[in-house]
């Protein structure tokens, strides 16, 4: 396997001296879906925010061979990293279309804006129906689609998704995760944080299990699904599986 697109080594994130992420090693190969699983408060969001540069961290993060230590959020977006945060962080009083166009602000002087918009609307037809509606009036699933669409307008190489299925109906979750799988097939690498382990492992190529800020297990989906102890403690499969 070639060098990974994104690699983190000995990553630590601390808030007011309390460690949220400790000693995490992680790699996302190009064109793959890597998922991070784990219970609430395991440090999953902190990890993504640190990789994006939204919160400070210690350790080494490289993207496409470049050290990210000195790079701010803006520079990381320019390199091709993009984060869809857990709270979506949409521009709620602006229209769906404006939200999408602003996702391309970095590339505003280049061509291809219309084509990119068309691609997003083809991927999420619901957004086209609501293109003039205010983002704040969308349903939960539409908001997630818009957040993903806005991130994709910037043509990222790696898309980081923080709990995209949070609070959504099962059918919508399926739609969103199918879209994620299609994105991977289109060449976008994905780092997917999920509490919904079963759904995430269905599309992922590799997984990490985070607990108390540490990686307690990693491997391909089959390995993770086979480990009874991990399943019971962190993934809640048994509870979800009908007897």
């Amino acid at each position: 396997m070639s060098a990974p697109l994104l690699a983190a080594a000995a990553l630590h994130v601390a808030y007011d001296g309390i460690l949220a992420v400790q000693e995490v090693h992680l790699a996302v190969p190009a064109g793959r879906i890597v998922t991070i699983l784990g219970p609430n408060g395991a440090g999953k969001s902190s990890l993504l925010n640190a990789l994006m540069g939204v919160v400070p961290c210690a350790g080494c993060v490289t993207f496409a061979g470049h050290d990210l230590a000195a790079e701010g959020v803006e520079a990381r977006v320019a390199m091709g990293l993009s984060l869809v945060p857990e709270k979506r962080e949409l521009f709620s009083s602006m229209s769906v279309e404006d939200n999408l166009r602003l996702g391309r602000f970095r590339l505003r002087r280049g061509a291809g804006g219309e084509a990119a918009l068309k691609k997003i609307f083809a991927m999420f037809p619901r957004l086209e129906e609501r293109r003039h509606q205010q983002a704040g009036t969308l349903s939960g699933g539409e908001r997630q689609m818009l957040a993903m669409g806005r991130a994709l307008m910037g043509e990222p190489r790696l898309l980081m998704l923080d709990e995209p299925s949070l609070g959504l109906a099962p059918l919508v979750v399926r739609d969103i995760l199918e879209a994620v799988a299609r994105l991977r097939d289109a060449g976008v690498s994905i780092l997917l944080v999920e509490q919904n382990a079963r759904a995430a492992l269905r599309i992922a190529d590799y997984g990490y299990v985070l607990e108390g800020g540490r990686v307690v297990m990693e491997g391909p989906p089959a390995t993770l699904q086979a480990d009874g102890r991990i399943i019971e403690s962190y993934l809640g499969f048994r509870a979800a599986e009908p007897a």
């Binding site: 939204v54 959020v73 945060p85 949409l90 521009f91 709620s92 404006d98």
Partner: peptide, 23 residues
């Protein structure tokens, strides 16, 4: 204008604006 909308976006959601690299 896109620039005007970028200013509004920054006013509406600072983190969102950072994530789409509005300087």
């Amino acid at each position: 204008t896109l620039l005007g909308k970028a200013l509004r976006a920054t006013a509406v959601n600072r983190l969102g604006a950072r994530l789409v690299a509005i300087p």
